[in-house]
Protein backbone atom coordinates (compact mmCIF):
# COMPACT_ATOMS: atom_id res chain seq x y z
CA UNK A 1 0.00 0.00 0.00
CA UNK A 2 1.09 3.56 -0.59
CA UNK A 3 1.56 5.97 2.29
CA UNK A 4 0.47 8.89 0.13
CA UNK A 5 2.47 11.20 2.37
CA UNK A 6 0.42 10.19 5.40
CA UNK A 7 2.42 7.51 7.16
CA UNK A 8 0.38 7.39 10.35
CA UNK A 9 -2.91 6.92 8.54
CA UNK A 10 -1.34 4.32 6.24
CA UNK A 11 0.09 2.45 9.21
CA UNK A 12 -3.27 2.47 10.97
CA UNK A 13 -5.02 1.08 7.92
CA UNK A 14 -2.33 -1.51 7.41
CA UNK A 15 -2.49 -2.72 10.98
CA UNK A 16 -6.27 -2.81 10.87
CA UNK A 17 -6.12 -4.96 7.76
CA UNK A 18 -3.51 -7.24 9.30
CA UNK A 19 -5.52 -7.68 12.48
CA UNK A 20 -8.53 -8.67 10.38
CA UNK A 21 -6.50 -11.12 8.31
CA UNK A 22 -4.56 -12.75 11.09
CA UNK A 23 -7.26 -13.16 13.66
CA UNK A 24 -6.27 -13.88 17.20
CA UNK A 25 -2.58 -14.76 17.14
CA UNK A 26 0.35 -13.92 19.35
CA UNK A 27 2.94 -11.53 17.94
CA UNK A 28 6.40 -12.47 19.20
CA UNK A 29 8.36 -9.69 17.57
CA UNK A 30 8.01 -6.62 15.39
CA UNK A 31 10.39 -4.62 13.23
CA UNK A 32 10.24 -1.43 11.24
CA UNK A 33 12.25 -0.15 8.30
CA UNK A 34 12.22 2.55 5.64
CA UNK A 35 12.25 6.32 5.94
CA UNK A 36 9.33 6.25 8.38
CA UNK A 37 10.93 3.61 10.59
CA UNK A 38 11.28 5.79 13.69
CA UNK A 39 7.73 7.01 13.54
CA UNK A 40 6.38 3.52 12.95
CA UNK A 41 8.51 2.01 15.71
CA UNK A 42 7.02 4.36 18.30
CA UNK A 43 3.47 3.63 17.22
CA UNK A 44 3.64 -0.15 17.03
CA UNK A 45 6.39 -0.74 19.61
CA UNK A 46 9.10 -2.30 17.46
CA UNK A 47 11.82 -4.64 18.67
CA UNK A 48 14.21 -3.61 15.92
CA UNK A 49 14.46 -0.47 13.81
CA UNK A 50 16.58 -1.17 10.76
CA UNK A 51 17.68 0.93 7.81
CA UNK A 52 16.27 -0.22 4.49
CA UNK A 53 19.63 -1.07 2.93
CA UNK A 54 20.47 -3.73 5.50
CA UNK A 55 16.87 -4.96 5.48
CA UNK A 56 16.86 -5.39 1.71
CA UNK A 57 20.15 -7.24 1.76
CA UNK A 58 19.00 -9.63 4.50
CA UNK A 59 15.76 -10.36 2.66
CA UNK A 60 17.43 -10.93 -0.69
CA UNK A 61 19.98 -13.28 0.83
CA UNK A 62 17.29 -15.26 2.51
CA UNK A 63 15.54 -15.93 -0.80
CA UNK A 64 18.61 -16.27 -3.02
CA UNK A 65 21.56 -17.10 -0.75
CA UNK A 66 24.18 -16.66 -3.49
CA UNK A 67 22.87 -13.21 -4.60
CA UNK A 68 25.65 -10.85 -5.70
CA UNK A 69 23.80 -7.72 -6.83
CA UNK A 70 20.58 -6.14 -5.61
CA UNK A 71 18.92 -3.45 -7.68
CA UNK A 72 16.20 -1.73 -5.73
CA UNK A 73 13.96 1.03 -7.02
CA UNK A 74 11.20 2.37 -4.85
CA UNK A 75 9.00 5.40 -5.03
CA UNK A 76 11.38 8.03 -3.74
CA UNK A 77 14.77 6.42 -3.74
CA UNK A 78 16.81 3.79 -5.41
CA UNK A 79 19.70 1.70 -4.22
CA UNK A 80 22.26 -0.75 -5.40
CA UNK A 81 23.73 -3.29 -3.01
CA UNK A 82 26.73 -5.40 -3.90
CA UNK A 83 27.39 -8.59 -1.95
CA UNK A 84 30.62 -10.53 -1.90
CA UNK A 85 31.17 -13.83 -0.13
CA UNK A 86 27.76 -13.57 1.45
CA UNK A 87 28.18 -10.16 3.08
CA UNK A 88 27.36 -6.63 1.96
CA UNK A 89 30.45 -5.35 0.20
CA UNK A 90 29.30 -2.00 -1.12
CA UNK A 91 26.13 0.01 -1.57
CA UNK A 92 24.92 3.29 -2.98
CA UNK A 93 21.75 5.26 -2.69
CA UNK A 94 20.50 7.95 -5.02
CA UNK A 95 21.25 11.44 -3.80
CA UNK A 96 18.93 14.34 -4.35
CA UNK A 97 17.92 13.37 -7.87
CA UNK A 98 14.59 11.63 -8.40
CA UNK A 99 15.17 10.77 -12.06
CA UNK A 100 16.04 7.18 -11.23
CA UNK A 101 13.03 6.40 -9.07
CA UNK A 102 9.45 5.25 -9.26
CA UNK A 103 7.99 8.71 -8.83
CA UNK A 104 9.63 9.67 -12.11
CA UNK A 105 7.79 6.87 -13.90
CA UNK A 106 4.56 7.66 -12.09
CA UNK A 107 4.70 11.23 -13.24
CA UNK A 108 5.53 10.43 -16.86
CA UNK A 109 2.85 7.73 -16.98
CA UNK A 110 0.19 10.14 -15.82
CA UNK A 111 1.40 12.68 -18.40
CA UNK A 112 0.93 10.07 -21.12
CA UNK A 113 -2.43 9.03 -19.65
CA UNK A 114 -1.28 5.45 -19.14
CA UNK A 115 -2.11 3.62 -15.91
CA UNK A 116 1.23 2.83 -14.26
CA UNK A 117 0.30 -0.86 -14.11
CA UNK A 118 0.21 -1.04 -17.91
CA UNK A 119 3.27 1.08 -18.45
CA UNK A 120 5.60 -1.88 -18.86
CA UNK A 121 3.46 -3.66 -21.45
CA UNK A 122 3.49 -0.56 -23.64
CA UNK A 123 7.26 -0.67 -23.57
CA UNK A 124 7.37 -4.30 -24.61
CA UNK A 125 5.32 -3.52 -27.73
CA UNK A 126 7.89 -1.09 -29.07
CA UNK A 127 10.55 -2.11 -31.54
CA UNK A 128 12.28 1.23 -32.06
CA UNK A 129 12.65 3.07 -28.77
CA UNK A 130 13.00 6.84 -28.73
CA UNK A 131 16.05 8.28 -27.03
CA UNK A 132 14.95 10.33 -24.01
CA UNK A 133 17.39 12.33 -21.87
CA UNK A 134 17.20 10.63 -18.50
CA UNK A 135 19.65 12.80 -16.58
CA UNK A 136 16.95 14.83 -14.93
CA UNK A 137 13.26 14.21 -14.44
CA UNK A 138 12.40 17.74 -15.48
CA UNK A 139 14.46 17.63 -18.67
CA UNK A 140 13.20 14.16 -19.47
CA UNK A 141 9.68 15.50 -19.40
CA UNK A 142 10.39 18.33 -21.82
CA UNK A 143 12.28 15.90 -24.02
CA UNK A 144 9.32 13.57 -23.98
CA UNK A 145 6.85 16.31 -24.86
CA UNK A 146 9.07 17.26 -27.75
CA UNK A 147 9.19 13.65 -28.98
CA UNK A 148 5.40 13.43 -28.72
CA UNK A 149 5.04 16.55 -30.82
CA UNK A 150 7.39 15.09 -33.40
CA UNK A 151 4.88 12.27 -33.80
CA UNK A 152 6.64 9.32 -32.19
CA UNK A 153 4.45 6.43 -31.05
CA UNK A 154 3.57 6.23 -27.37
CA UNK A 155 4.98 2.69 -27.16
CA UNK A 156 8.35 3.87 -28.42
CA UNK A 157 8.39 6.81 -26.01
CA UNK A 158 7.52 4.57 -23.08
CA UNK A 159 10.30 2.15 -23.94
CA UNK A 160 12.64 5.12 -24.34
CA UNK A 161 11.66 6.29 -20.86
CA UNK A 162 12.38 2.87 -19.37
CA UNK A 163 15.78 2.89 -21.00
CA UNK A 164 16.42 6.44 -19.78
CA UNK A 165 15.63 5.49 -16.20
CA UNK A 166 17.86 2.44 -16.35
CA UNK A 167 20.66 4.46 -17.95
CA UNK A 168 20.39 7.08 -15.25
CA UNK A 169 20.33 4.44 -12.52
CA UNK A 170 23.38 2.66 -13.88
CA UNK A 171 25.33 5.90 -14.41
CA UNK A 172 24.44 7.33 -11.05
CA UNK A 173 24.42 4.44 -8.64
CA UNK A 174 26.26 1.62 -10.29
CA UNK A 175 29.15 3.79 -11.46
CA UNK A 176 32.35 1.79 -11.10
CA UNK A 177 30.64 -1.17 -9.47
CA UNK A 178 30.86 -4.70 -10.76
CA UNK A 179 27.36 -6.01 -11.40
CA UNK A 180 27.67 -9.77 -11.11
CA UNK A 181 24.98 -12.47 -11.30
CA UNK A 182 22.73 -13.47 -9.67
CA UNK A 183 21.07 -10.05 -9.89
CA UNK A 184 17.89 -9.43 -7.91
CA UNK A 185 15.58 -6.58 -8.84
CA UNK A 186 13.26 -5.51 -6.04
CA UNK A 187 11.14 -2.57 -4.95
CA UNK A 188 7.83 -1.43 -6.37
CA UNK A 189 9.28 -0.61 -9.78
CA UNK A 190 10.22 -4.29 -10.27
CA UNK A 191 6.56 -4.82 -11.18
CA UNK A 192 7.26 -2.86 -14.34
CA UNK A 193 8.18 -5.37 -17.06
CA UNK A 194 9.47 -2.56 -19.25
CA UNK A 195 12.12 -1.58 -16.73
CA UNK A 196 13.15 -5.18 -16.15
CA UNK A 197 13.56 -5.65 -19.91
CA UNK A 198 15.59 -2.44 -20.12
CA UNK A 199 17.86 -3.64 -17.30
CA UNK A 200 18.43 -6.99 -18.96
CA UNK A 201 19.14 -5.26 -22.24
CA UNK A 202 21.57 -2.76 -20.72
CA UNK A 203 23.40 -5.29 -18.57
CA UNK A 204 23.25 -8.19 -20.97
CA UNK A 205 22.46 -10.35 -17.96
CA UNK A 206 19.48 -12.06 -16.46
CA UNK A 207 17.56 -10.15 -13.78
CA UNK A 208 15.62 -12.13 -11.18
CA UNK A 209 12.53 -10.68 -9.56
CA UNK A 210 12.00 -12.26 -6.16
CA UNK A 211 8.59 -13.41 -5.03
CA UNK A 212 8.09 -10.63 -2.48
CA UNK A 213 9.82 -7.97 -4.60
CA UNK A 214 7.54 -5.16 -3.43
CA UNK A 215 7.88 -5.81 0.31
CA UNK A 216 11.48 -6.96 0.54
CA UNK A 217 12.37 -4.24 3.06
CA UNK A 218 9.56 -5.33 5.36
CA UNK A 219 10.49 -8.97 4.83
CA UNK A 220 14.09 -8.19 5.80
CA UNK A 221 13.02 -6.24 8.88
CA UNK A 222 10.83 -9.18 9.90
CA UNK A 223 13.74 -11.60 9.49
CA UNK A 224 16.01 -9.38 11.59
CA UNK A 225 13.32 -9.08 14.27
CA UNK A 226 12.86 -12.85 14.22
CA UNK A 227 16.59 -13.44 14.68
CA UNK A 228 16.63 -11.11 17.64
CA UNK A 229 13.54 -12.58 19.25
CA UNK A 230 14.91 -16.11 18.96
CA UNK A 231 16.86 -15.25 22.08
CA UNK A 232 13.40 -15.35 23.69
CA UNK A 233 13.04 -11.84 24.98
CA UNK A 234 9.71 -10.15 25.53
CA UNK A 235 8.47 -8.15 22.59
CA UNK A 236 7.85 -4.40 22.68
CA UNK A 237 4.92 -4.83 20.35
CA UNK A 238 1.98 -2.90 21.71
CA UNK A 239 -0.70 -4.99 20.08
CA UNK A 240 -3.04 -4.23 17.21
CA UNK A 241 -5.42 -2.24 19.38
CA UNK A 242 -2.70 0.21 20.35
CA UNK A 243 -2.03 0.92 16.69
CA UNK A 244 -5.63 1.85 16.16
CA UNK A 245 -5.50 4.55 18.79
CA UNK A 246 -5.55 8.13 17.68
CA UNK A 247 -2.11 9.32 16.67
CA UNK A 248 -1.09 12.64 15.29
CA UNK A 249 2.22 14.20 14.45
CA UNK A 250 2.99 17.84 14.19
CA UNK A 251 6.09 19.90 13.71
CA UNK A 252 7.13 23.10 15.35
CA UNK A 253 10.16 25.30 15.24
CA UNK A 254 12.29 25.19 18.35
CA UNK A 255 13.32 28.67 19.43
CA UNK A 256 16.16 27.53 21.69
CA UNK A 257 18.93 28.74 19.39
CA UNK A 258 19.48 30.15 15.93
CA UNK A 259 19.44 26.68 14.37
CA UNK A 260 15.63 26.84 14.60
CA UNK A 261 15.28 23.06 14.24
CA UNK A 262 12.01 21.67 13.02
CA UNK A 263 11.03 19.38 15.86
CA UNK A 264 8.48 16.69 15.08
CA UNK A 265 6.21 15.63 17.91
CA UNK A 266 4.10 12.51 17.97
CA UNK A 267 0.96 12.63 20.08
CA UNK A 268 -1.59 10.08 21.09
CA UNK A 269 -4.74 11.55 22.62
CA UNK A 270 -2.84 14.72 23.53
CA UNK A 271 -0.12 12.73 25.24
CA UNK A 272 3.35 13.40 23.84
CA UNK A 273 4.92 10.07 22.90
CA UNK A 274 8.08 11.09 21.17
CA UNK A 275 9.83 13.93 19.45
CA UNK A 276 12.78 14.15 17.09
CA UNK A 277 14.39 16.32 14.49
CA UNK A 278 16.43 18.50 16.86
CA UNK A 279 20.13 18.79 16.35
CA UNK A 280 21.11 19.15 19.98
CA UNK A 281 19.05 16.28 21.39
CA UNK A 282 17.21 18.54 23.84
CA UNK A 283 13.80 17.24 22.83
CA UNK A 284 14.57 13.83 21.42
CA UNK A 285 16.30 12.65 24.59
CA UNK A 286 13.68 14.02 26.94
CA UNK A 287 11.27 11.14 26.69
CA UNK A 288 11.95 7.73 28.15
CA UNK A 289 15.55 8.76 28.53
CA UNK A 290 16.56 7.50 25.13
CA UNK A 291 16.85 9.17 21.77
CA UNK A 292 14.33 7.72 19.38
CA UNK A 293 16.23 8.64 16.32
CA UNK A 294 19.45 6.74 15.94
CA UNK A 295 22.07 9.45 16.04
Amino acid sequence: MRTGGQPIEALRKGMEYLAGQLGNIEIRGAGTTGSGRQLASVIIGADIVKNEITAHAVAAQNLVPEVKTILEIGGQDSKIIILKNGVVYDFAMNTVCAAGTGSFLDRQASRLNIPIEEFGSYALRSDSPVRIAGRCAVFAESDMIHKQQMGHRVDDIVRGLCQALVRNYLNNLAKGKLIAEPILFQGGVAANVGITAAFEEALGKKVIIPEYYDVMGAYGAALIAKRKMEKSIDTNFKGFDACLRDYSARSRECSGCSNVCEVIELFSNDELLASWGDRCGKWSSRLEGRPLVAR
Binding site: N51, I53, V87, V88, Y89, F91, M93, A294
Partner: peptide
Protein backbone atom coordinates in the same frame (compact mmCIF):
# COMPACT_ATOMS: atom_id res chain seq x y z
CA UNK B 1 25.13 20.00 0.44
CA UNK B 2 22.77 22.68 1.55
CA UNK B 3 19.71 20.57 0.98
CA UNK B 4 20.97 17.16 2.02
CA UNK B 5 18.52 15.72 4.48
CA UNK B 6 19.61 14.27 7.77
CA UNK B 7 17.51 11.14 7.18
CA UNK B 8 19.59 10.29 4.13
CA UNK B 9 22.81 10.58 6.11
CA UNK B 10 21.41 8.49 8.97
CA UNK B 11 20.38 5.69 6.64
CA UNK B 12 23.74 5.66 4.90
CA UNK B 13 25.73 5.70 8.14
CA UNK B 14 23.59 3.01 9.72
CA UNK B 15 23.89 0.80 6.67
CA UNK B 16 27.62 1.45 6.47
CA UNK B 17 28.20 0.50 10.10
CA UNK B 18 25.98 -2.58 9.64
CA UNK B 19 28.11 -3.53 6.66
CA UNK B 20 31.37 -3.04 8.58
CA UNK B 21 30.14 -5.09 11.55
CA UNK B 22 28.70 -7.80 9.33
CA UNK B 23 32.08 -8.19 7.70
CA UNK B 24 33.93 -8.12 11.02
CA UNK B 25 31.85 -10.96 12.43
CA UNK B 26 32.18 -12.83 9.15
Amino acid sequence: DEHSGEAGLDTRLEAFIDMVRWRCTD
